[in-house]
Design a protein around this nucleic acid. Sequence first.
DNA 1: GTAAGATCTAGAGTTCGCTCTAGGTCAAGG
DNA 2: CCTTGACCTAGAGCGAACTCTAGATCTTAC
Lengths: 147, 147
Amino acid sequence: MDEGLTIGQVSERTGLSVHALRYYEREGLMLGSVSRSHGGRRRYDATDVDWLLLCNRFRACGMPVSDIRRYAELVAAGPGNESERLELLRAHEDRVRAEVAQMQENLTVIAAKARLYEQHIAAGSAGTLWTGEAPSCLALEAMAARR
Amino acid sequence: MDEGLTIGQVSERTGLSVHALRYYEREGLMLGSVSRSHGGRRRYDATDVDWLLLCNRFRACGMPVSDIRRYAELVAAGPGNESERLELLRAHEDRVRAEVAQMQENLTVIAAKARLYEQHIAAGSAGTLWTGEAPSCLALEAMAARR
DNA sequence: GTAAGATCTAGAGTTCGCTCTAGGTCAAGG
DNA sequence: CCTTGACCTAGAGCGAACTCTAGATCTTAC
């Protein structure tokens, strides 16, 4: 009954599977190697959990495992490389901003299509009005249907 | 020299590789099978290209290939299933909205971290102020560095 | 006619991020 | 002491979405 959290407890707290936690460690994503109990089991501390929650954020916005490893290495190396860390964060920030913008643009197209289908369906079950005078956004489906 | 575009031309216009185009067809993502020239080569028309551009949007916001196939099947089946198409679009729309919201939240955390690193770096190269009084958002890195 | 280059098919291979298996070890309760 | 269940390592396997290979065929230009 040592100090610290077991891998199972950390799994619950982070939502990562125990397999994923071992994988993250193997891949060098932890800030140094996780400490072990007398019997050789992993014992995580609060910092480990916080770090893993941050990793979850990184992963959730598409940061590759290799970039997280790089960031972890910089942090583990201690003070003196803050500008490198910043560069990595900024690069990721930019990528995510671009991706969000892209997704929002695509979302408007998809939403527009959905709204048009709603109107079409609401306007009655007749397929008659549909083919031929479909607005540009549904012209594709209309044409395809005509084949 | 038949009508229509070759796979190479469509590749240029859509950004999809010729391999990906053949893969999409095999996977049932096209609205029916692409027509062929006398010699057995694919000939795409404008509708195919428009459809592929739409597929690109779908893919760019994370719609799985299997969902696109489903949507393609519905469109290819012709009028009468508009509410199913709508359901699929709406489900995807909701997922993307949630994902965008999540990404934006993560983005604020990452951006905050980046801003703090900027301040730290701007405040002079001293690592002294750093450890110990780091704001909450960088406490993790500070603690890790202290090990 | 012939050489080059685009395309064809079927199927194998790749990358990413886990996930699972096998065969043990360790810790706690009865 | 024995059982049960969480944990260990090393390494194989998996699903998604392509990507590439091999060997054949088609098209075009000279």
